[in-house]
Simulated scan of single mutants.
Amino acid sequence: MTVTDLPPRPGPPALVLVAHGSRDPRALSTVRALQDRVRALRPGLPVHLGHIELNAPLLPDTLAALGETEAVLVPLLLGRGYHVKRDIPEMAAAARARTRVAAPLGPHPLLADTLRARLLEAGWRPRPASAVVLAAAGSRDPDARVDTDRMAGLLAARLGVPVLSAYASAAAPTVPEAVTALRAKGRRHIAVASYFTAPGRFATECAAAAPGLVAAPLGAHAAMADLILHRYEQALGTPVTVAA
């Protein structure tokens, strides 16, 4: 057998970005831009997109189009919660594709780098008596709260100022409550870091509740693409899930 007779090597498992979905059109454009960044970093890696709800393509449709190929699902979500623990694994298990589900993006030091960059873009600078509110979506799952608080700790270490978690829904404190708590501790200069993958309803509501400076969501920052590929590589060491 000559070299030209050898069968072609199989390509790498596909990477499927799993976005939540939003009625805000900026959300879809943001995750598409993030998809483009990942493709630029890893030419030759098939990178697809699927949504849990509200936007096309929906994740089951994306997985159906992949047939029986191998894929790694990377949730564009920032902590453990219902979507990460139930929705995505159930959709993956129902597909014919051989799938692995990666960990959510957060918490991670690369997110602290991205949050800091967004704050600096918005004009934030550390000053005496300053603090930051980390505004997140919120969840009833206690693990999600643990993950957000861990992210607040990572961001505090990165910024050198106190960071307090706050939530748009399903958990406390809210952004105004967090601001009040920080002011009670003598913090006069309070900014809001938007701990959201993309613009959407909750990010908009948290920005509206901010007392002053508010940063943009994480978006299609270069560090986000690096983190997605890191989660993809991590997941390749986990067992494959095959539909029953």
Rank of each mutant, 00 (worst) to 15 (best):
A112K: 08
L120A: 06
A95H: 09
R96P: 10
A102H: 12
L111Q: 11
A102Q: 10
I88R: 07
L120S: 00
G123M: 05
D113V: 13
P89C: 01
L120Y: 04
A102R: 07
A122N: 02
P109Y: 14
R100Y: 12
P126S: 00
R125H: 05
E121M: 00
R98T: 12
I88H: 08
L110W: 12
R127F: 00
P107T: 15
W124S: 05
G123T: 09
A97K: 13
A122M: 00
A117E: 05
L120G: 01
A95I: 01
P89M: 00
V101S: 05
R100Q: 14
T99M: 00
A92N: 04
R98L: 09
L115A: 09
W124A: 02
H108E: 06
D113T: 12
L115V: 04
L105K: 10
A93Y: 06
D87N: 10
A103E: 15
T114S: 03
R100V: 06
D113K: 10
W124L: 04
M91N: 06
A102L: 07
L110Q: 10
A112Q: 12
R125N: 01
I88D: 07
A122Q: 02
R125T: 13
H108G: 09
T99H: 01
A93H: 09
T99I: 02
P107V: 13
R100A: 04
G106I: 06
R98F: 14
E90N: 10
V101G: 06
L111G: 04
